[in-house]
Design a protein around this nucleic acid. Structure first.
Length: 677
DNA sequence: CTTAGGG
DNA sequence: CCCTAAG
């Protein structure tokens, strides 16, 4: 049939088709939403969450807020160094006043009074939305501002503490864990435990540094990238009938891009169905609301999952729900929320001298399995407090991330180095953080002991209290976590021992199996340099940490969310933009070949035919690529960017495009005629 | 889910 | 790449 057509309409190559496809052009497009891309500082956030919890604990014990802020029970604020334009404004006011709202520099998540339960997720989302807000707007640039931002966020936490933003939520720390997923590494991190009326009493803040450091160098092991010969990227299968079948006989081989690529290759992961169920739980009303709030692709995914489709029908990058996480850590997109009251947060004299301290940069690859230990300097002291003597004020100063080895070619750009470091940190901390308490060098494992019992409350000497921060999945101390239910259950007075409980981020039910994650991320990420030729891309893919599984949210309550570390999937507005992966020449070749055969209107077939195993290429991608190819072919060579595509290929693009355009025109004409007659 | 197109 | 109206 194709042959017939070909003969019938003698294809002559280079004519640029004038056949318009007006059918869909009329579609109006809705208002363009403003997008802000940012980078996720998950690692830092997680790290900071440790402190956040402490704060949370202290805050939750406060019955009334000391400031004039009303009902700002879910305030989130971040500093705005990352946003130059706001520097001026953001410094001017004390966030405690809660009056000056600066949307850009401050994000305030309004509490959904009376709907706390049902809206926690929303709050989470918004909170993270806010975070991403901070991280800068350049979508694919990873520069200092990220670090700075995180540092300032952390500072913000401290500030929050000082300002006495009290949490009016009934639930204690865990459920709103997300509120504190901000922070920094290497900066100053302070947190205090206080039971009494919340107030910043600088007079009593005679923190003494207590902790030592455990600078265990960490070895990041990763299999070396497999350098695949470019030819191996293309599977050439000569098909018998192709000569007669293809309108472009001269390229009759059946080219297929083979990619052992990444993303969706996360086969052993079983988290999906669980996750699915988690999302099915909320009542429909909320679902609808959520959908409204987050009309994102990811949300749709969730919706679909809700519909009972646990198994994606079409395993391309978009439909497969375990997909892009490993590699798309930071190009994430955020959506703007209009219902949040931004507040300008000033620096408040917080220090940002913290710098990530990674002595020998050397990335060896998949570091997920690497042991990681962060040390922290902790100042702790007995609070000269009158109330029952159970107040322990802790000030965690400066988390230090131990050595992180990164290996990067000398030719790599500074930008890629930054990214790499970022990725490494994220990868290490990506699975959450386990916090251990060291008292005089000994780890306190019994989480049920009170501080009094363990002696923490009496810590007077320096260097007697330390914290161990490890990736969540490397350390599992099951008993430690059993307290969470009580934590989430409410405002009853808790012992100090419990205050520390939430510090332990347990991989528990909230996490995907570590093995799964390992399998999912490092190993499966593309090693095919043909597919991902650029260093940045490949390193990105490989160093990408696995994000957590979806939070299993019980239908009855969403409270468990609280204990869950930052989770991308539970924050639909944090949709990351997929990382850019330029088409390689071989991919272009495969695409051209497929289109020559199939035409320009059957992208799914093209995908199946030539990119079936390239999971990261969706048919939409292929369609887009074709579009750009056509464009590229039409512009002058010196205007082209990126990896140069052989002119021969571009010629074929034009030829095929012309041919199939005409072909389509004729088709339409035919049908039109048929209709008329 | 796919297509087709605009952004 | 993203988003999304249409089909």
């Amino acid at each position: 049939m194709v042959l017939q057509r070909r003969l019938e309409y003698s294809f002559d190559g280079y004519q640029v088709p004038v056949v318009p496809r007006a059918s869909r052009s009329v579609r109006g497009r809705g208002p363009i939403r403003k997008k802000c891309d940012g980078n996720q500082i998950r690692a830092f956030e997680i790290l900071a969450s440790v402190a956040g919890n402490i704060l949370q604990e202290s805050e939750s014990s406060v019955q009334s807020n000391a400031t004039g802020v009303k009902d700002q029970n879910h305030i989130f604020y971040t500093n705005s160094k990352g946003e130059r334009e706001d520097e001026g404004r953001s410094i001017k006011k004390d966030p405690c006043e809660g009056e000056n709202f600066d949307e850009k520099s401050f994000a305030c998540v309004p509490g959904f009074q009376g709907h706390q339960k049902s809206n926690k997720l929303n709050e989470f989302c918004q909170a993270h939305d806010n975070i991403s807000h901070k991280v800068g707007s350049a979508s694919n640039t990873y520069d200092h501002s990220e670090v700075i931002c995180s540092a300032e966020k952390l500072a913000t936490i401290t500030r929050k503490n000082h300002c006495g933003y009290s949490s009016s939520r009934v639930v204690g720390g865990p459920p709103y864990f997300g509120d504190f997923y901000e922070g920094k590494v290497g900066g100053i991190l302070e947190s205090k435990l206080e039971d009494g009326p919340y107030r910043s009493r600088s007079g009593r803040d005679q923190s003494l540094t207590v902790a030592g450091s455990s600078e265990d160098p960490m070895e990041l092991d990763r299999e070396p990238l497999a350098l695949v010969d470019s030819e191996s990227d293309v599977k050439v299968t000569l098909s018998r009938d192709c000569v007669n079948f293809v309108p472009f006989p001269r390229h009759c081989d059946n080219m297929k891009v083979v990619s052992r690529d990444d993303d969706e290759n996360s086969v052993g992961c079983t988290q999906t169905s669980t996750v699915t169920k988690a999302y099915r739980s909320p009542p429909d009303i909320q679902q609808r609301r959520m959908k409204k709030l987050f009309p994102s692709r990811h949300w749709r995914k969730s919706q679909k999952l809700k519909d009972g489709k646990k198994k994606p029908i079409y395993c391309n990058g978009r439909n497969f729900h375990i997909d892009e996480r490993p590699q798309n850590i930071y190009p994430f997109k955020k959506r703007k929320f209009f219902n949040q009251s931004p507040i300008s947060a000033s620096d408040g004299g917080l220090h940002h001298e913290g710098v990530i301290n990674f002595p020998n940069k050397r990335i060896n690859g998949d570091n997920r399995s690497a042991a990681f230990g962060a040390s922290s300097s902790v100042a702790s002291q007995q609070v000269p407090h009158e109330s029952k003597g159970c107040d322990v004020k802790l000030s965690i100063k400066s988390f230090k991330v131990p050595e992180l080895f990164i290996e990067i070619p000398a030719t790599a750009t500074v930008g890629s180095l930054k990214r790499t470091v970022m990725e490494a940190v994220t990868a290490v901390l990506g699975d959450g953080l386990h916090v251990g308490i060291l008292l005089q060098g000994k780890e306190i494992r019994d989480d049920n002991k009170s501080l009094l019992q363990t002696g923490i409350s009496q810590v007077q000497k320096r260097h007697s209290l330390g914290f161990i921060l490890e990736p969540g999945h490397t350390q599992i101390t099951p008993p430690a976590c059993t307290e969470h239910p009580s934590m989430v259950s409410g405002g009853k007075p808790r012992s100090l021992s419990r205050h520390l409980a939430p510090l332990t981020l347990q991989p528990g039910a909230s996490y995907a199996s570590p093995d799964c994650q390992l399998l999912n991320s490092g190993g499966s990420v593309e090693r095919d340099l043909n597919i991902v030729p650029s260093l940045a891309d490949s390193s990105t893919g490989n160093a990408m940490p696995e994000t957590q599984a979806l939070v299993a949210v019980p239908a009855t309550s969403m409270e468990p969310l609280a204990v869950v570390p930052f989770d991308q999937k539970s924050h639909p507005e944090f949709v990351r933009r997929r990382i850019r992966r330029p088409f390689s020449v071989s991919e272009v070749e495969a695409l051209v070949q497929a289109v020559e055969k199939l035409g320009t209107g059957r992208w799914r077939d093209v995908k199946l035919r030539a990119f079936d195993s390239a999971k990261h290429r969706t048919y939409v991608d292929l369609k887009d690529k074709w579009k750009t190819l056509v464009h590229t072919a039409r512009i002058s060579p010196h205007q082209r960017r990126g990896e140069p595509v052989p002119q021969e290929l571009l010629d074929r693009v034009l030829a095929a495009h012309a041919y199939w355009s005409q072909h389509q025109a004729r088709q339409q004409l035919k049908t039109a005629e048929a209709l008329c007659s």
